[in-house]
């Protein structure tokens, strides 16, 4: 399927964007962008609404195909054709879960495995592993999405994304629709989960606290461009320009203040 792949793909990166642009009609959602997503790290795409971070995530999943340039996943260019197979190695969690309302939690999680004709035994034991990892109550599995809380829905969504044991998890504002307490619980559980599973994670958020808490590698975006890239400390200690500074300051909270202690910002 893929012939003569460039060997320049860095050993340590799972996903590479090479000169990728995304243009809708007269609007440029993403200017020429190069990006390496490191393996087994959590990369956070951070920035205000409309900065192109969700577009970038969709490009990684092949839900959109770049206007120019290419996205390479584990050595294979992501095209509308190859994406159909590659997505089995990707998990995707969106704001408010994206659970299918006509299926129970269990059926949502098992959907793809059933479609791939796993045995029911195998499906069941995999789901039992997952409810331990996500700390989801077993009796919730027979419920429909409308019957469980927003936080539990997100746990189901994570299980669904993890079912086929993907190489990478793409998270698009996964905590966006949750109230603060549930959000904090889930953030913490997720962090443990990611650490224990040792997965590559790409998360989109506009919340600086969330980025600081979860991210190993922060990609700061604005108006369809990557403005600054690096560790959270790197960004807060040396903000590239006044926009980055303003963006961080605007979201200062008590909890963030602790993280920012001793920094210049």
């Amino acid at each position: 399927m893929v012939v003569g792949m460039s060997t320049k793909v860095s050993q340590a990166s799972l996903l590479t964007l090479k000169n990728v642009t995304m243009i809708f009609g007269s609007q440029t959602a993403l200017h020429p962008t190069n990006l390496d997503i490191p393996k087994q790290k959590t990369t956070v795409l951070l920035g205000p609404s409309g900065c192109g971070k969700s577009t970038l995530l969709r490009l990684c999943l092949g839900l959109m195909i770049p206007s120019t340039g290419e996205v390479i996943f584990e050595g294979t260019p992501v095209t509308s054709e190859s994406a159909l197979e590659l997505r089995k190695k990707m998990g995707y969690v969106i704001q408010d879960g994206g659970l299918f309302p006509h299926l129970t939690a269990y059926e949502n999680i098992a959907l793809m495995a059933r479609h791939l004709e796993w045995t029911e035994d195998r499906i069941q034991s995999r789901i039992h592993e997952l409810i331990k990892v996500t700390q989801f109550p077993e009796d919730g599995l027979t419920r429909y999405p409308v019957q469980i809380s927003g936080g539990q829905r997100q746990r189901v969504s994570f299980m669904r994304a993890l079912m086929l044991d993907p190489d990478v998890l793409f998270l698009d504002e996964p905590f966006g629709a949750l109230d603060p307490v549930i959000r904090a619980d889930l953030q913490e559980d997720l962090k443990h989960m990611i650490q224990s599973l040792n997965k590559t994670v790409v998360m989109v958020t506009h919340d600086i606290g969330e980025a600081a808490y979860a991210g190993d590698h922060i990609v700061f975006m604005k108006e369809g461009r990557i403005l600054q890239e690096g560790s959270f400390e790197g960004i807060v200690s040396k903000p590239k320009d006044s926009f980055v500074t303003r963006f961080i300051r605007a979201q200062r909270t008590v909890s963030l203040d602790k993280l920012l202690e001793g920094h210049a910002i």
Binding site: L61, L63, E85, Y92, I94, Q95, H102, L111, L164
Partner: peptide, 25 residues
């Protein structure tokens, strides 16, 4: 759209997506 994208992102091909997700919905 998020539901449709979730279905595609799982790796369902369009036909399976129609049968398992879109027609039931």
């Amino acid at each position: 759209l998020p539901l449709r994208e979730s279905a595609l992102a799982l790796g369902l091909r369009p036909k399976a997506c129609l049968k398992l997700i879109e027609l039931p919905l």
